[in-house]
Amino acid sequence: MNDGSFIYLYLFNQILATRYIMPNQHPFFFLSAAFTYPEQANIHPFFEILASLSADLSIEFNHQAADSTSLTDLQAEYVRLFINSPAGVPAPPYASIYIDNRGILLQQGHDEAMSFYQAAGLETIESSECEDHIAFELAFIGHLIEDNRLDLLNKFINEHVLKWYPAFSQRLQSARPCHFYQVLGQITGLCLQHILIEEKADE
């Protein structure tokens, strides 16, 4: 796969051109935010966007689950799935865990992510999190889209993100996540798939 044309972006830019959407409103910054620890007192906007994206992508969305989830529920679930759990953290959200089957933090997968960030001339903000956390990688995709770095975006997704996201997603889904993270995992997977169009696609 080399520099393919990019239908999603093409359309996206078309929409931009008609000024229906602000530049930061493709889903990747949202997905990134949704994969960070939930702390906003009002979590409804998250559910609304998730519901809306679900509709766009023909994913089933359970509105009742959204209504019955409290912030504490969401936090406890986030901790269980991604930080620490008595059952062993089921889906550590880091590239390093999955790439080359390393199973631990800050290995090859992290090196890869860092070198992509460097190549794009970006660096991560000061954070207590590892830079190959899914939230960083999704935000990075957002930046690449905005800056129109198609070649790098293609490489980043093919040579890095898709090397680990499916394995992560599988572990996330088999941990029986609450509806929010179940749908978030599915939507992110689809977005990562659909952003890439193979070269011959527009023939």
């Binding site: 239908i7 999603y8 359309l11 996206f12 929409i15 229906y20 959407i21 602000m22 930061n24 409103q25 493709h26 889903p27 910054f29 949202f30 990134s32 935010a33 960070t36 906003q40 009002n42 906007p45 998250f46 609304e48 966007i49 809306s52 994206l53 509709a55 766009d56 992508l57 960030y117 970006l122 660096e123 991560t124 903000i125 954070s127 939230a135 960083f136 999704l138 935000a139 990075f140 957002g142 930046h143 905005e146 689809l190 977005c191 659909h194 952003i195 169009i197």
Partner: peptide, 28 residues
């Protein structure tokens, strides 16, 4: 390929005003 509906666009527009740093604020 992904098509985003107007509803999603609206929701995300509102979201970005919800006190969160623009673009996730994770990179500089």
């Amino acid at each position: 390929f992904l098509k985003m509906s107007a509803a999603t666009a609206m929701a995300m527009a509102a979201f970005s005003l919800d006190g969160l740093p623009p673009k996730g604020g994770l990179f500089r």
